[in-house]
Simulated assay, not measured.
Amino acid sequence: MNNFTFYSPTEFVFGRETESRTAELVKKYGGSKVLIVYGGGSVIRSGLLARVESVLSDAGIVYVKLGGIQPNPTDPKVYEGIELGRRERIDFILPVGGGSVIDTAKAIAVGIPYEGDFWDFFIGKAVPEKAVRIGVVLTIPAAGSEGSGNSVITKLDGLKKLSLRTPEVLRPAFAVMNPELTYTLPAWQTACGITDMMAHIMERYFTNTEDTEVTDRICEGTLKAIIYEAMRVTIEPCNYGARANLMWAGMIAHNGTCGVGCEEDWSSHFLEHEVSAVYNVSHGAGLAVIFPAWLTYMAEHHAGKVAQYAARVWDVPKSTDCKAMALEGIRRFKSFLHSIGMPVTFRELGIEHPDIDLLVKKFHENKGERVGNYFPLDSKASREIYEIANR
């Protein structure tokens, strides 16, 4: 196990009707003038946005709003939010929604006090030292952004989808998590979220770091819990227990718990970022295509941990043939993804003729000549993974 610093100061307020405590929490963490950030019509149709506005008003908290955040969030809304936040002199940001809304809010939060272009942080030109404080009202369990210091934004100029990781600056002060708010999620969105949280765990699980038994078991147990609850929620969308466990699993998957002491990988996420940047597909659905392809490549080139994953998560019988074990685990993983309505090939994702040359080019332009840690990918390897996804 490697040396590590684990920093996770977010206060999680979990359960039924917890959104009623939003104003109390904003005040607790110093907010007096709030920028509410939200997406499309669901938070309006459900009445959630109105309830949040009501509790803020009743508490005497002034707020302004920025709506219209789309999936795969892009930089124009970030610039709009930075300008609005500065003009209104806001001191707290409250995203009400899922990962795209929260990621946009985080980018706004680092952009407001910064004299340069917020994109400097995403390209590594500058490191965030301060940000406007954030609290979250979560509606979609998937990205885990409610418990992480990460943000992913696409810059429309060049379609560059990049991530920012600053746990010391951007972890939310609080996260309100009411599983009942997820009852009305479409089955597709639920399945995309399930895939995303599983991928967050696996990016940390596939490591060459030795003596990580506790972290491995946390990853494996959480994956098995997600698989179990995914099948329950598919049959009973309004099952509170299933929704509650999935909501908590999404947070655990990405707040750092599953990667303690490990060198993480993340090449599958970066491979997918190019797909969703170019083709604007759902991130979770893109991961459902890319991760099995990455695993298939690893079964041939670095099968050991994939065989362990197959045995411990998918109950594949142990044998001396690690490659065969790995491939059977991948087959079971893909079968599970199909069972919850996810695609596992580019064609099933709706991309009949992916421009693999372009994807490979952008992947290495954005991430370097060799990407990832479990088995670093050069352009030949990344091409082969995209080609596997295209079979």
Rank of each mutant, 00 (worst) to 15 (best):
I201C: 11
M202I: 12
E203R: 02
E203H: 01
E203D: 11
R204S: 13
R204Y: 02
R204K: 15
N208D: 08
T209I: 05
T209C: 07
T209L: 05
E210A: 14
D211Q: 06
D211A: 11
E213D: 06
V214K: 10
T215C: 13
T215L: 01
T215D: 02
D216S: 04
R217E: 11
I218H: 06
I218E: 02
C219S: 15
C219H: 05
C219V: 07
E220P: 04
E220Y: 08
E220V: 00
G221Q: 03
G221V: 02
G221F: 09
G221S: 10
T222N: 08
L223Q: 07
A225D: 13
A225P: 00
A225N: 14
I226E: 06
I227P: 01
I227H: 06
I227E: 02
I227L: 15
Y228D: 08
E229Y: 15
E229I: 00
E229D: 12
A230H: 07
A230E: 01
A230Q: 00
A230Y: 07
A230V: 03
M231S: 14
M231D: 11
M231V: 09
M231G: 06
R232A: 04
R232K: 15
R232T: 11
R232M: 07
R232V: 01
V233M: 03
V233K: 04
T234R: 15
I235T: 10
I235A: 10
E236H: 10
P237Q: 00
P237S: 02
C238M: 10
N239A: 00
Y240L: 12
Y240T: 03
G241M: 08
G241W: 06
A242E: 06
A242M: 04
A244L: 07
N245K: 14
N245F: 10
N245D: 10
N245S: 09
N245A: 12
L246P: 00
W248G: 04
W248E: 01
A249Y: 03
G250E: 12
G250I: 02
G250N: 04
G250C: 08
M251Q: 15
I252W: 09
A253S: 15
H254Q: 09
H254I: 05
H254E: 14
H254G: 14
H254N: 15
H254W: 09
N255M: 12
N255V: 00
G256M: 09
G256F: 07
G256Y: 10
G256E: 11
T257Y: 11
C258M: 15
C258S: 09
G259K: 03
G259M: 06
V260N: 04
G261W: 06
G261C: 13
C262H: 07
C262D: 08
E264G: 14
E264I: 15
D265P: 13
D265R: 13
W266Y: 15
S267D: 15
S267W: 03
S267K: 12
S268T: 07
S268L: 03
H269M: 10
